[in-house]
């Protein structure tokens, strides 16, 4: 058990210093989360080509397409978790954006579709902001608020579209499908990188990112440092809403229809990607690349199962087991470290 006593480190000297072991551990602590996920993805891809030697550019394309909505869901969850919260309404917001896109774009041309997409992104951000505002203003714990708003947004999705249907212009779908630059670089990946970068890089470089991390790390200290904690938390939920809307659009692009119940899956899987991607659920630590890459690993699992001739229904079991194992392993390491 941790005894968070001020003097814990006191006796070793005032300044963090010395020791190659300490330095290497700190190095690992700082960079492992950064290189860990690409490494895992590379291993997973290598494994896939090993069990299925004909795994090629086309499979990469379908992997990217399949992972796209999940990657956005993971990104959405990451924003909120870094700010010290949790958002269990991500899946429902994805569903809302999905059915909104599929129902309005059905007879639209490409330009109109793009305008509609922009509108949906704004709507998503607003919905996220509403989530955040309720969390901040109502003083109800975020788990309960987002569990409930998730239920409500799910109702909204059903209201917009009762049964799967709708569609979108082919050009819009092509934004994610196929390859343009290189056969090994699917458009879906370019789209993902572009969309995440447009939101995340300014955030990370600017003051807003600092605020989000500060609030997630220690709310009281952040407040005393002059941070507007409530607006920052709302900002995090707004970003989550924005990424969720992107996820909904991505789902429309990859499936070409709207399905009011398809989103639910993404709340849990997005969280799974987050956990596997190495973002601390206590907030304040982690980046967006881990969860996004983890989304690809998670998507690869059912594919590999098919290649291995295993019932793909095992996919959910494996995903659940993976979350459980990862968090248990994390807990085990912490317990061991504290025992010393």
């Amino acid at each position: 058990m941790v005894r968070n006593d001020p003097s814990e480190k006191g006796a070793t000297g005032f300044l963090p210093s010395g020791g190659a072991r300490v330095a290497s551990m700190r190095w690992a602590g700082r960079y492992l989360p950064v290189i860990g996920m690409p490494l895992l993805l590379a291993v997973a891809l290598l494994f896939t080509t090993w069990i299925h030697p004909s795994f090629g550019a086309f499979d990469i394309q379908s992997l990217a397409l399949g992972a796209l909505p999940l990657a956005f869901a993971a990104a959405a969850q990451t924003c909120v978790v870094i700010s010290g919260g949790i958002d269990l309404s991500v899946g429902s917001l994805i569903a809302v954006a999905n059915v909104l896109a599929a129902s309005t774009m059905q007879h639209a041309d490409f330009r109109q579709a793009l305008l509609l997409a922009a509108g949906i992104l704004i709507a998503g951000a607003i919905s996220g902001a509403i989530n955040g505002a309720i969390v901040v203003l109502s003083r109800i714990p975020d788990v309960v608020v987002t569990l409930t708003t998730g239920f409500i947004w799910g109702g909204v999705a059903l209201l917009i579209m009762e049964k799967p249907g709708g569609g979108a212009p082919q050009q819009f779908l092509d934004l994610a499908a196929g390859t343009t630059l290189a056969p090994w670089l699917p458009n879906a990946v370019i789209l993902l990188i572009a969309a995440v970068a447009v939101v995340w890089i300014p955030l990370k470089l600017g003051r807003a990112g600092l605020l989000v991390y500060a609030v997630g790390s220690d709310r009281v200290a952040a407040f005393r440092s002059g941070v507007g904690v409530e607006t920052t938390r709302i900002l995090a939920y707004t970003l989550s809403g924005l990424f969720s809307a992107m996820g909904g659009l991505a789902l429309t692009m990859t499936t070409a229809i709207g399905a009011p119940l398809a989103g639910v899956y993404y709340t849990l899987s997005g969280l799974a990607a987050l956990v596997i991607g190495g973002v601390s659920l206590t907030g304040g630590r982690g980046g967006i690349s881990g969860p996004v890459l983890a989304a690809f690993v998670l998507t690869l699992i059912p594919t590999d199962l098919i290649f291995l001739n295993i019932d793909p229904n095992y996919g959910q079991v494996i995903q659940g087991t993976l979350i459980v194992l990862v968090v248990m392993l994390g807990g085990f390491v912490t317990v061991l470290r504290n025992r010393k």
Partner: peptide, 12 residues
């Protein structure tokens, strides 16, 4: 704030 560096804290 514990998860920020000193200089980030000052910027904060």
């Amino acid at each position: 704030v514990p998860d920020l560096t000193l200089s980030q804290n000052m910027r904060l």
